[in-house]
């Protein structure tokens, strides 16, 4: 048998490309769509706010100044106001000065500071919950779509049942049962959106599993695990990234809604949903305490939706 190694010529190995550089470069793809750029810009703004919250927030988010209750935006803190603090050394008075640029809420807390800290709260819990939902959804979807047969039947039926619950009713039932906390929210989101993600992944896998390169992997005896995670999953990433952006936006809304309904993170967490719930009675007297958090959450969700739209547009161009 001839051997290809006999084929003379000296071998010079080409440089292996650096995978990290490749991943970083793919982020630059965003530049191809204006819509995606706008989305990214707003998103980066909020991420920076969240990361820098301890530095840029003028006041602690829970600090109450009774004189500033429902104060209008731009009201300066009256001179001589001080916070009485009980320390080991005794009672200390810490003077408070400056201006409540976005006004005060019904307990006299600074709306701006609460909004800044609220960004941190939402940008921790929404990605966390979405991430867990994706882990579960991707695993189930890969199994159902690749294995087919009874695995698919069981997982799909189960998903259908969960999806047939009106989503907020499901949250209410889950949170009534387990009580309101950050972990419950993550669990509830995973439980409620996992099946939806599974459905999408399954659909993608059903298409991708018939590709010839999957057959090629099968005919060289690759394990199911290798085929699912190496041959199939990376090729489903486009639609999944788009869906993840949308779902992140949706989770942000959900966390806001739960906060608004009093089922979310317990007060005094400066969650945007909580802020709106706490001040909604004052919507006609001191609208600033609800309107600004509304704009904040809407702009964050808008950023994610624009990003998803832009990414979809970019992926269609190729």
């Amino acid at each position: 048998m001839a051997d290809i190694d006999a084929a003379g010529a000296e071998i010079v190995l080409p440089k292996r490309p650096n995978p990290v550089v490749g991943v970083l470069k793919s982020f630059l793809l965003v530049r191809e769509s204006k819509v995606a750029m706008v989305g990214t810009a707003i998103l980066v703004f909020w991420v920076l706010i969240a990361v820098l919250a301890p530095v840029i927030a003028p006041y602690p988010p829970t600090q109450q100044v009774s004189e500033m209750r429902n104060a209008a935006p731009g009201t300066p803190v009256p001179a001589g106001t001080a916070l009485i603090s009980f320390t080991e050394q005794g009672v200390a008075e810490i003077p408070i000065e400056g201006t409540y640029w976005l006004g005060g809420d019904r307990l006299g807390r600074d709306v701006l500071s609460r909004m800044i800290w609220g960004a941190q709260s939402v940008l921790i819990y929404a990605p966390l919950a979405t991430f867990f939902a994706y882990m579960v959804g991707i695993t189930m979807g890969l199994l159902a779509g690749y294995k087919r047969g009874w695995v698919d039947d069981v997982l799909s039926r189960l998903g259908d049942v969960i999806l047939s619950f009106p989503i907020l009713v499901l949250y209410v039932v889950i949170i009534t049962t387990f009580g309101a906390s950050g972990i419950t929210i993550v669990l509830a989101v995973t439980f409620a959106s996992g099946p939806g993600i599974m459905r999408i992944v399954r659909g993608l896998v059903l298409d991708l599993r018939n590709r010839d390169y999957v057959a090629a992997a099968q005919t060289r005896g690759e394990s199911s695990l290798y085929i699912m995670f190496v041959e199939i999953l990376p090729n489903a990433r486009g639609p999944l990234i788009v869906d993840a952006c949308l779902r992140l936006g949706y989770t942000t809304i959900t966390i806001g809604v739960l906060g608004f309904l009093g089922l979310g993170l317990p007060p005094p967490d400066p969650n945007w949903g909580n802020m709106i719930a706490e001040n909604r009675e004052a919507v006609l007297t001191a609208p600033h305490s609800t309107v600004f958090p509304c704009l904040a959450i809407s702009s964050l969700v808008l950023a994610l939706n624009l990003l998803a739209d832009g990414l979809r547009e970019i992926s269609l161009k190729d």
């Binding site: 806001g256 608004f260 709106i276 919507v283 006609l284 509304c294 704009l295 808008l302 939706n305 624009l306």
Partner: peptide, 22 residues
């Protein structure tokens, strides 16, 4: 449509109340 679907119901409730009532 992308803007309107980005505003959660509780937010648009606040904003519309602010606009039409306040």
């Amino acid at each position: 449509s992308v803007i309107t679907t980005s505003i959660p119901e509780f937010a648009s409730a606040v904003l519309l109340t602010f606009l039409f009532v306040f």
